[in-house]
Amino acid sequence: MDIYKVFEDPRIKMLENDIASWNDHCRYTDVEKHVMKQLLRCRSNVLYELNVYDSDMHQLLVSFNDRLRKACAELYNKVMTTYEEYCNRTDSFGDFEVEGKIYLGAEYPNHHPLQTETAKQVWDALTQGGFEPLYDDGCAWSLHCSKEYPPEYGGCETFEKWIGMEDENDNWNEGLDREWSKDLHMIQPFHNLYDHCSFSLYDLIYVHDFDLEVHIQLERNVKYE
């Protein structure tokens, strides 16, 4: 896999220059947000055409999936620990809700071979711009637990169910070459990022950092941890 060749494609160079320029001067009007969303999706579609399904990509994608799964497990454990803590408290504060979200690290991945200002602007648009509503909840469906609605109510009674891996043979590999990816066992959060949020394989495989958020709402007040 020659990632430098991929990003030398004239279509990608043009799209990324446009994205960087719009992102640098964006005032977030409805028109500007629509243009940015279309540019990001066009970039994702072109990079999809340029996917290289070789052994290097296979190993990089396996490693990313493992890192994403570990980060999701950390968030899940934090949310469930917090939920149990508040369930066991004797304070009389009524109902409460614990919410957990996981995002790709806001900083441009320092493991990525391409360290240009344009690439960093594109990453900022993807992760911080708010141009893809589905990414507002992060890499996965946000976790919600409350006294009134325990984990099983929201379909997150187990970690495996939350990440879509109740069966050991589950594999969220839509959009990938099926034969090449048949043994990858990709988790649902990868599917969400790759199929629904305009991230390409070349964006994801170099991500090592994730941002975790746990919010606690007590009646009308929200406590951030």
Score class of each variant (00 low, 15 high):
103 Y>S: 04
69 R>I: 07
61 L>M: 15
108 Y>M: 06
83 Y>G: 04
107 E>G: 09
86 Y>E: 00
113 P>C: 11
90 T>H: 07
73 A>L: 15
103 Y>G: 02
109 P>S: 13
98 V>N: 03
85 E>T: 04
102 I>G: 05
100 G>F: 00
73 A>P: 05
94 G>K: 03
96 F>R: 00
79 V>Q: 04
106 A>Y: 12
79 V>T: 08
77 N>S: 15
101 K>E: 06
109 P>C: 12
67 R>P: 00
101 K>L: 12
82 T>S: 07
92 S>P: 05
112 H>N: 14
70 K>W: 00
111 H>V: 15
68 L>I: 10
112 H>D: 14
95 D>M: 02
92 S>D: 15
87 C>F: 05
109 P>M: 11
77 N>K: 15
65 N>F: 14
91 D>T: 13
63 S>H: 09
103 Y>K: 11
97 E>R: 09
68 L>H: 03
109 P>D: 11
76 Y>W: 15
63 S>Q: 11
91 D>A: 14
97 E>V: 13
101 K>N: 10
81 T>C: 06
81 T>M: 02
107 E>W: 08
98 V>P: 06
80 M>K: 06
101 K>T: 09
97 E>K: 09
108 Y>E: 07
71 A>K: 03
110 N>D: 15
62 V>T: 12
106 A>Q: 13
93 F>D: 11
81 T>E: 04
66 D>Q: 10
110 N>G: 08
91 D>M: 07
113 P>S: 12
101 K>A: 08
95 D>W: 00
105 G>Y: 07
74 E>G: 14
98 V>D: 04
100 G>S: 01
98 V>Q: 05
76 Y>N: 10
62 V>N: 09
75 L>W: 10
83 Y>P: 02
105 G>M: 07
82 T>I: 01
108 Y>F: 13
100 G>R: 00
89 R>S: 09
112 H>Y: 10
106 A>E: 14
88 N>C: 10
108 Y>N: 04
61 L>K: 13
80 M>P: 03
63 S>I: 07
63 S>T: 12
78 K>W: 03
74 E>A: 12
93 F>E: 11
78 K>I: 01
112 H>R: 12
90 T>R: 10
84 E>A: 13
93 F>P: 07
77 N>Y: 13
106 A>G: 12
110 N>E: 15
69 R>P: 04
109 P>V: 04
86 Y>W: 03
72 C>I: 06
90 T>Y: 08
103 Y>H: 14
112 H>T: 11
78 K>H: 05
65 N>H: 13
94 G>E: 03
86 Y>F: 10
94 G>Q: 05
63 S>E: 12
69 R>Y: 11
110 N>R: 10
75 L>H: 10
73 A>N: 14
78 K>N: 05
